[in-house]
């Protein structure tokens, strides 16, 4: 069992450092901007000046997690679908517009996907296992799976999370490469997991990823197989948090988490936060399934249980 010790999100919702994010969650509109905490409280000014939104979100959410748990992280595993888009685009502009030999290096340095996890380790002076995963809409799930594996291997305080940032350029791909009516948004969610119960109220029972899924029927089969392998069935689910709304029929409560996150490919990380806090506020509910079918050719499934539930 992988107990959720603490979880923090910086999103377009008022979600950072809240007892229960559901107190203020509401469906997003295109007008909702990213709600940024005062980053200066978390990041030294000398470092902050260079950092793009995704880095600020990632470092701050991680640091807020570290402050809430007694032990230093002994594993850091981060997922990002498109990585540091602002700096990537900035450097693309530089190489196409600066004619001279001398190019500003900062955007390049901060364009690599592992800048997020690297900066977290640098900021926390953490020498532990440090991994960056990127698998489109399953980026959070593959990072989470690595974190769970670390706990199986004996790690005690595992940081897992995901971050993505929106840039205006994405709008150009709407309707052709990115089929969504949701606003493009930014978000970061980081969680501390541990094999010990601690002060947690819920645990991740299992997480699976499936690439190259074909049809709706295949998805239903995969979901049922996954639940079966984890000793439960759809009748045991109190809530499904789904990227779309294809599986309303499977559980008594259903929420499309993307209504609350907007569109970024690692938004399922925020669904984990929604699940954890749902169990805080709904004392009778026990089991939540996150169905990440944001992209049609892949599926991520994450099962979250209240601590009293036998895994």
């Amino acid at each position: 069992m992988y107990f959720i010790q603490h979880i923090e999100s910086i999103t377009h919702q008022n979600s950072f450092q809240k007892e229960n994010i559901w107190d203020e969650l509401k469906p997003l509109t295109a007008e909702n901007q990213l709600i940024s905490p005062d980053y200066k409280n978390y990041i030294p000014v000398a470092a902050l000046r260079r950092l793009s939104t995704i880095l600020r979100m990632g470092i701050t959410a991680s640091k807020a997690c570290q402050e809430k748990v007694p032990n230093e992280f002994d594993s850091i595993s981060v997922g990002t679908a498109l990585g540091c888009l602002t700096d990537t685009e900035k450097f693309l502009v530089t190489i196409n517009t600066v004619s001279g030999d001398v190019l500003s290096p900062t955007a390049f340095i901060q364009s690599t996907h592992n800048t997020i996890s690297g900066q977290i380790s640098l900021d926390l002076k953490n020498h532990a296992y440090n991994m960056t995963h990127t698998q489109n809409a399953l980026s959070f799930e593959v990072a989470l799976k690595d974190g769970l594996l670390c706990i199986d291997e004996g790690k005690k305080s595992v940081l897992v999370g995901a971050a993505d940032e929106a840039i205006p350029f994405l709008e150009r791909l709407r309707g052709s490469l990115i089929l969504t009516h949701l606003p493009f948004t930014s978000g970061a969610t980081f969680a501390v997991l541990s094999g010990e119960k601690g002060n947690s109220i819920a645990f991740v029972q299992a997480c699976e990823v499936y690439f190259s899924t074909k049809s709706q029927e295949t998805l239903v089969t995969l979901i049922n197989q996954f639940l079966d392998a984890n000793n439960c069935s759809s009748g045991d689910l109190d809530l499904i948090l789904e990227a779309r709304s294809d599986f309303r029929f499977l559980a008594k409560n259903h929420i499309s988490f993307t209504d609350y996150t907007g569109f970024y490919q690692s938004a399922s990380a925020f669904a984990l936060h929604m699940a954890n806090d749902w169990l805080i506020g709904n004392a009778d509910d026990k089991r939540i399934l996150i169905v990440n079918n944001l992209e049609s050719n892949k599926l991520g499934l994450t099962l979250i249980n209240r601590n009293e539930v036998e895994a």
Binding site: M131, T134, Y210, F211
Partner: peptide
């Protein structure tokens, strides 16, 4: 890129990409 490589081999299920420079 990894999904395309997996497709070329016919691999499904667990496909992942590590990006640590």
């Amino acid at each position: 890129t990894s999904e395309q490589i997996a497709q070329e081999l016919g691999i499904r299920g667990y496909v992942n990409t590590i990006s640590t420079a």
